[in-house]
Computed example of a mutant assay.
Amino acid sequence: MRFLVPFLFGLTGFAVLVALGVWQLQRLDWKEGVIAQIEARITAAPVDLPPTPDQSADNFLPVRLDARVTGAPLRVLGAWRGGSGYRIVAPVETGGRRVLVDFGLVPLSASETTLAPGPYAIIGNLSWPDDVTSATPDPEGSTWFGRDVSAMADTLGTDPLMVVARTVTPSAGPQPLPVGVEGIPNSHLGYAIQWFGLALVWLGMTVFLLWRIRRRTL
């Protein structure tokens, strides 16, 4: 009995921790499948801009636009995967509609940014970025600190739609930063390693405890 209770307690804890690690591996498989689906959607053949895009159904939808810039752009200051700088978001007219286009990145040294009116052939993805939090500062003139589609659309007088450019022909100047899967969190492998590591530690502590009990009984 002196051995049985610690043994069962240790075995139960070890089994629970291993089960949690296996569950995280299952979640990893699921998340990788989701990311693969999103990546396939992002890189699919572009289509014309839908008449009434829906955020839940059309996020990341590849689209093509023949557009002209119809106003001064906004500059979004931040650190992006392409480096620190300003993302240039401008109002464009396409097919009788006015929408937002994220043309890409210019360096911090760019004191002002202007875009030629075009026309441009743009291939990109519909996107509803989640850059803005409660800690995001308010805009300062044309400089913003996060892409807020609704607020930007109100400021520039466009439909609340944003296309993040993948290619712009001819080049408008900014370096396009296409939508990608790099920002989608996927920490399940790390969590699984942690649970399996804790399981090994638990097993080692159980073996050590049983050894100590055995020493006392000798």
Rank of each mutant, 00 (worst) to 15 (best):
T114M: 07
G85N: 11
P117W: 00
D66K: 06
L77T: 03
F9T: 14
A72Q: 13
V34R: 13
T94M: 00
L20W: 08
G146A: 14
M205A: 15
V168S: 02
L200Q: 03
G96H: 03
S171R: 10
L200V: 13
D29L: 10
R64G: 05
G10Q: 05
T155W: 04
D131E: 09
I38H: 10
W195A: 08
V5R: 14
L161F: 07
I213G: 02
V201S: 03
L161H: 08
G13R: 07
I193A: 15
D159N: 07
R87Q: 14
G190W: 01
A151M: 09
D138S: 14
W144T: 04
F103G: 06
V63F: 01
S111K: 11
I122G: 02
A165P: 08
Y86L: 11
D131C: 01
G124M: 04
P73K: 07
G118S: 04
P174H: 08
T136F: 08
I123Y: 00
Q37S: 12
R2K: 12
G96W: 09
T133K: 04
T169I: 01
G183M: 04
A199F: 01
V164Y: 01
D29W: 02
A67I: 00
P137W: 05
L156F: 12
A57C: 04
T114K: 12
W211N: 11
R64I: 06
L105Q: 07
T136Q: 08
V164A: 01
G96S: 00
I38Y: 11
R68D: 04
P73D: 06
L218C: 04
V163L: 01
F103T: 08
V76T: 13
A110C: 05
M152N: 13
V18G: 03
A72N: 09
V18K: 00
F7G: 10
P62A: 05
L115V: 08
T43W: 11
V76S: 13
D148E: 14
T155K: 14
T70D: 10
Q37H: 13
H188W: 10
L74A: 13
P119N: 04
P50N: 15
L156C: 08
G173L: 06
L11P: 01
P107I: 01
T143V: 15
V207T: 11
L209D: 08
L198V: 06
S111P: 02
V179I: 13
F60P: 00
F103C: 05
G183N: 11
P62F: 07
R214T: 10
V149N: 03
